[in-house]
Measured scan of single mutants.
Amino acid sequence: TGEEYIAVGDFTAQQVGDLTFKKGEILLAIEKKPDGWWIAKDAKGNEGLVPRTYLEPYS
């Protein structure tokens, strides 16, 4: 299990392996990579890379 984050903006996948999401979606951070791209999972179970700058902790 990971930590929940809320998307603060829309993001469209730029390449294969990225995860597209919309502002307000809750994402589960699976792995926090030091380069600023995290592996996350959305509510539908889709998994991919997301930019850290689009996420804020969800409580």
Rank of each mutant, 00 (worst) to 15 (best):
Q15C: 15
S59H: 13
T53L: 12
L27G: 01
K32I: 08
D18H: 15
G17Q: 06
V8A: 06
A13V: 03
L27M: 07
T1Y: 13
P34H: 11
K44V: 09
E31N: 11
G45P: 01
G36F: 05
Y58E: 05
L19F: 03
F21L: 05
K33A: 09
I6H: 03
A13I: 03
Q14H: 11
L27I: 07
S59I: 14
Y54P: 02
K33Y: 11
G9D: 14
P51I: 04
A43D: 08
T53C: 15
A7P: 01
F11E: 00
Y5N: 01
A29Q: 03
D35I: 02
E31V: 13
V16D: 13
W37N: 07
I6G: 01
K33I: 06
Q14I: 12
T12G: 06
K32R: 08
V16N: 10
P51D: 12
L19Y: 00
G36H: 05
W38P: 01
I39P: 02
E3P: 08
I26M: 07
G9E: 15
G17C: 08
K23M: 08
G24S: 04
F11Y: 14
P34C: 13
P57E: 10
A40M: 15
D10Y: 04
Y58S: 08
V8C: 13
L27P: 00
K23A: 10
S59L: 14
F21G: 02
P57C: 08
E56D: 07
E47L: 14
T53Y: 12
I6M: 08
G24V: 00
T1P: 13
D42W: 00
K41T: 07
R52I: 12
Y58V: 12
T1R: 13
T1K: 13
G17T: 07
K33L: 13
T12I: 12
D35E: 07
G48L: 02
P34S: 13
A13D: 03
Y54D: 05
V8S: 07
L55C: 04
Q14F: 09
A43C: 12
I30A: 02
Q15G: 12
K41E: 05
G24R: 02
L49G: 07
K32T: 06
P57Y: 08
L19P: 01
W37R: 09
G48K: 00
Q14E: 10
W37A: 05
K32W: 06
F11C: 06
V16Y: 11
K44F: 14
A40P: 00
G24Q: 02
L19N: 01
I26Y: 05
L27D: 00
D18G: 14
G48N: 01
E31W: 09
W38K: 00
G2Q: 12
E25A: 10
G48F: 03
K44E: 11
L55D: 03
P57T: 06
Y5W: 11
G9I: 14
K44Q: 13
A43Y: 09
D18K: 10
S59V: 14
V50P: 02
V50N: 01
D10M: 03
E3R: 11
T12A: 09
V16Q: 12
T53K: 14
D35V: 01
N46V: 09
G24P: 00
T53N: 14
I30E: 02
A13C: 07
Y58N: 07
E4P: 13
L55S: 00
W38H: 01
Q14P: 05
V50A: 08
G24I: 00
E31K: 11
I39N: 05
L27N: 00
E56R: 09
L27F: 07
I26E: 01
K32V: 07
Q15L: 09
K32C: 08
V8I: 15
L49M: 12
K23G: 04
D10I: 02
E4A: 14
T20I: 04
K23V: 08
S59R: 11
W38I: 07
W37F: 09
T53S: 15
G45N: 06
T1N: 12
V8L: 13
F11G: 02
I30D: 02
T1M: 13
F21N: 00
Y5H: 04
L28F: 11
Q15E: 11
V16C: 12
R52E: 14
G45F: 03
G48R: 01
I39V: 14
K32A: 07
K22S: 09
P51Q: 09
